[in-house]
């Protein structure tokens, strides 16, 4: 009698196992589907907006004319003049001082709104062959920030003038 019951319950057990397997399979597929649908894009640290800003700002005309006015340097040329410690004939100031003022003004115009909480600009000359690193300019507002940023390389003097800008966005 007991033996007869055991043989009868076997197909039932198999069906239950199959049903559970199907449930597990559907659950796994559902989790994968939801995971893909709800995945948020990872923010990139290299921002096209900042890269665009660096490219455009390099053409900005400054008040520094090394030889004679009105042959004024743009920001890109002024970085080179600052590396060479040149003096501006137009203002009798050092080119690095004018570079600092001009870049600060441009940065304040672009990143002073409520959307931004700070920025950090570093300009340095790097030569990998001679392992030379010379800091040219460092402008920072509201301390260090670890937001998005971009870099621009200007080939000069056998190495690279590296312009690195990081911008922090307000949380709200």
């Amino acid at each position: 009698m007991i033996r007869k019951n055991l043989t009868k319950s076997k197909p039932g057990q198999e069906e239950i196992v199959g049903f559970v397997l199907i449930i597990v399979l559907v659950f796994v597929v559902g989790v994968i589907f939801l995971g893909i649908m709800l995945r948020k894009p990872v923010p990139s640290s290299n921002s096209p907006e900042i890269e665009n800003f660096l490219e455009a700002s390099m053409l900005t005309t400054t008040d520094c004319a090394i030889n004679y006015a009105p042959a004024y340097d743009n920001l890109g040329d002024l970085i080179k003049s600052c590396y060479e410690d040149k003096v501006c004939a137009s203002t009798n100031e050092s080119s690095c001082s004018v570079l600092n003022k001009s870049f600060s003004s441009v940065l304040n115009k672009a990143f002073s709104g409520e959307r931004y909480s700070g920025y950090n600009l570093e300009i340095a000359y790097v030569n990998n062959e001679t392992e030379t690193v010379k800091e040219i300019l460092n402008i920072s507002r509201q301390g260090n920030c670890s937001g998005v940023g971009a870099m621009k390389f200007i080939n000069a003097y056998g190495g690279d003038l590296q312009v690195r800008l990081e911008v922090c966005y307000s949380e709200s």
Partner: peptide, 13 residues
């Protein structure tokens, strides 16, 4: 732009 009788390119952001 014109300055001291010379024409030059003045660029702003």
């Amino acid at each position: 732009a014109l300055e001291y009788g010379n024409v030059y390119d003045k660029c702003e952001l």
